[in-house]
Amino acid sequence: MAEHVVSRKTYIVVWIALMALMVLTAGLSRIDLGEWSTVVAMAIAVIKALLVILFFMHVRYEDQKITWVVVIAGFFWLGILLALSMTDYLSRGYLGVAGH
């Protein structure tokens, strides 16, 4: 399979977007959004990660299914880490801590 050639312009646009999002993150950290602070910060982080994966890591131009399997598996495993850790953190209030 031939390498997909990505124009320099695309890279520069993505880079500018990443920088803008970074400024946005830094700016929003100075404003108190209450419990939404974390949600907004994480949402921006996810967008940045997607930009890097899709453009800089060329996943967007990859037409082989196996590449997508690898990418999705990576995220699925991250999901396992977060979801099962949360079974602990989110339930500490309503069933108590073992031994206490």
Partner: peptide, 22 residues
């Protein structure tokens, strides 16, 4: 194998519910 790790932490102070799940 990736779904069982907190069985190392049963007496470490994880929630009773998490202990049950793991």
């Amino acid at each position: 194998g990736f779904l069982v790790w907190a069985h190392h932490m049963f007496v470490a102070g994880i929630s009773a519910y998490a202990a049950l799940v793991f």
